[in-house]
């Protein structure tokens, strides 16, 4: 098992009577790309705020790098953008990054590389206030990458961006992930998470309702579409069998759930004298599974 970078234990946050996060526990391990999914108001940003020390937890605790570093020292090894890019509007991109270098205690030599990675090297002397939202978001990613972070935390990184901006940020995240950087991505855009994450934590009303790999989650929603010359015979047989569960009909095909592979099923039915005219394997998209899990 890989090293645990962040471990949250029974985190809760109440705003008056409103329970934003309730007894949330999770682990972030090195080398994976995690997605925190949930509808607006599910507690994603609050959870990230707690582990980044900008929101005080009502109860519970968390530790970075298996307790080897206190939170403030640990955050110097983390790159994070919460909700929207926060910079000094009267400073240029480079001046803002110089300030981040001072805070993180890293040399200014890291700036050039970070600006290049996000494609802002030509705008480095321009004031932050003159940047478009997409450029601001890219500058925020450059800032988060300055210290070559062990983990990159992104909260709704494509919020408010136009399609081109969304694409640029997605490509950037995939590029960063491909370098082996651990990423924790909070989003309510399931397509975004499905494309880049291999682990997901699904939150609803501040509680974790699913935590596991995207692949496992996909498997749990896998189904087969089967067709036969005699569909009545097929249906009757499936109903009697313990190995199948009929999920419904899709056109003239049956939608079934089983633990067996398509090859073994084809062989099984032909042995039973039922000849299949159609057999295809399908997986539900993350969006469908998410809506099922959250009962939306």
């Amino acid at each position: 098992m890989s090293e645990i970078l962040l471990k949250a234990n029974q985190l809760s946050k109440n705003y008056g009577k409103v329970k934003a996060v309730t007894n949330l526990s999770f682990e972030i391990r090195k080398g994976s790309v995690y997605g925190i999914l949930g509808p607006n108001g599910s507690g994603k940003s609050t959870t990230l705020g707690i582990v980044l020390s900008v929101v005080n937890a009502s109860s519970g605790n968390f530790e970075w790098f298996e307790g080897a570093l206190d939170t403030q020292k640990a955050l110097k090894k983390v790159g994070a953008i919460i909700e929207r890019p926060n910079f000094y509007p009267y400073m240029s991109a480079r001046e803002n990054l110089e300030l981040v270098c001072l805070i993180k205690e890293i040399p200014n030599s890291a700036i050039e590389k970070a600006l290049k990675e996000v494609g802002l090297e030509d705008r480095s002397e321009d004031l932050f206030s003159t940047f478009s939202l997409g450029m601001k978001q890219r500058l925020a990613i450059a800032s988060a990458l300055l210290n070559d972070p062990e983990i990159l935390i992104l909260d709704e990184p494509t919020n408010g961006l136009d399609p081109q901006g969304i694409h640029q940020i997605r490509v950037l995240i995939q590029y960063i992930a491909s370098k082996g950087t651990t990423i924790l991505l909070a989003s309510h855009l399931l397509d975004e998470v499905e494309k880049v994450c291999d682990q997901v934590i699904i939150l609803q009303k501040g509680k974790s309702i699913y935590s596991g790999s995207v692949q496992e989650m996909g498997k749990s929603g896998a189904y087969l579409l089967v067709g036969a010359i005699d569909i009545e015979q097929l249906t009757a047989h499936i109903k009697q069998s313990q190995n199948f569960e009929i999920l419904g009909k899709e056109g003239s095909f049956l939608k079934i759930k089983t633990n067996h592979s398509p090859e073994s099923i084809n062989k099984y039915f032909s042995e039973q004298g039922i000849f299949l005219t159609h057999l295809s394997s399908h997986q539900k998209r993350l969006e469908e599974l998410f809506l099922e899990i959250t009962n939306a």
Partner: peptide
Amino acid sequence: KQNLIDGL
């Protein structure tokens, strides 16, 4: 907020 996130 960002200063704190950056490690101050």
